[in-house]
Design a protein around this nucleic acid. Sequence first.
DNA 1: TTGATATGCAATGATAAAAGATACATATTG
DNA 2: CAATATGTATCTTTTATCATTGCATATCAA
Lengths: 147, 147
Amino acid sequence: MIDVRFPTALQMMLSLALAQTAGVERLSSAQLAEGIDSNPTFVRRLLVPLIQAGLVHSTMGRDGGVSLSTDAAMITLGDIYKATMGNKKLWTGRSDIPHRCLVSCNVERFFGNLADEVDESVLDLLSKRTLADALLELRTLDAARAQ
Amino acid sequence: MIDVRFPTALQMMLSLALAQTAGVERLSSAQLAEGIDSNPTFVRRLLVPLIQAGLVHSTMGRDGGVSLSTDAAMITLGDIYKATMGNKKLWTGRSDIPHRCLVSCNVERFFGNLADEVDESVLDLLSKRTLADALLELRTLDAARAQ
DNA sequence: TTGATATGCAATGATAAAAGATACATATTG
DNA sequence: CAATATGTATCTTTTATCATTGCATATCAA
């Protein structure tokens, strides 16, 4: 199955950012789940690392829910990516390749280094964009759609 | 299951490049399969797009096998990636999100654009490296390993 | 204090993408 | 024509991911 954690977390964060600008204090996991057409448990699982990273604040109990910890302009898409994907690399190579020649003895490390470079370049790209930027892009797309 | 087509195709291409420098005319799918600890069918499936892209030349029949179509310095890792992964994007978002608000109506396109940018930056990185460069890196890694 | 309702979290089940396995037609060489 | 390679279709196995269910815990309000 395809891993949709990042796009999903991103949508949730965008919803929280929108709520923030609209003056809504917090959203429940059920509300967020509705937005992504999924279930509250999945939402809460995704929220855990975002909360631990300090991007989202959660309040328990009745009338509980989550909200952004800070202004949307202070959160980059890179922050969200790092939090939700943790140490998972974008690429994984074959493991336990039998060592028999120059290639098989060293590809594993070679590919690992390459994957690291890729991760870095993706994070660079994501870190240049804030949630606030993204929300603005959504408005632009929406305006284009309306025409 | 994790998609290991690119790392696998890369290893095969490196093996073919090494064979080329060693004066070996061609390798069979069985030989390549041994190198990646897999089976000839998987190898041949992976070879199809590489052959179609003109990166690899295949000869059928007894004593058949595959070899690089050109010098390893003329083939970039980007070529290999494009051939083996085809149109598959690095990221896929959730699909069929119900359209209910500014976010849900536009994230799909927003994320698609973002994914395109990521693909582009990864391909940029991969296209700066040739198979010959990679083979040289393997030798460097091997020398470091020997110590 | 208690009922309603939220999060936090564990465990189990369903789904789907990828790789493995098998079989066989076709091509080439000696 | 025998041996052995590729090309390709089909079926099975594996496994990462998401959905579902259940329940403990926290909070608010009547």
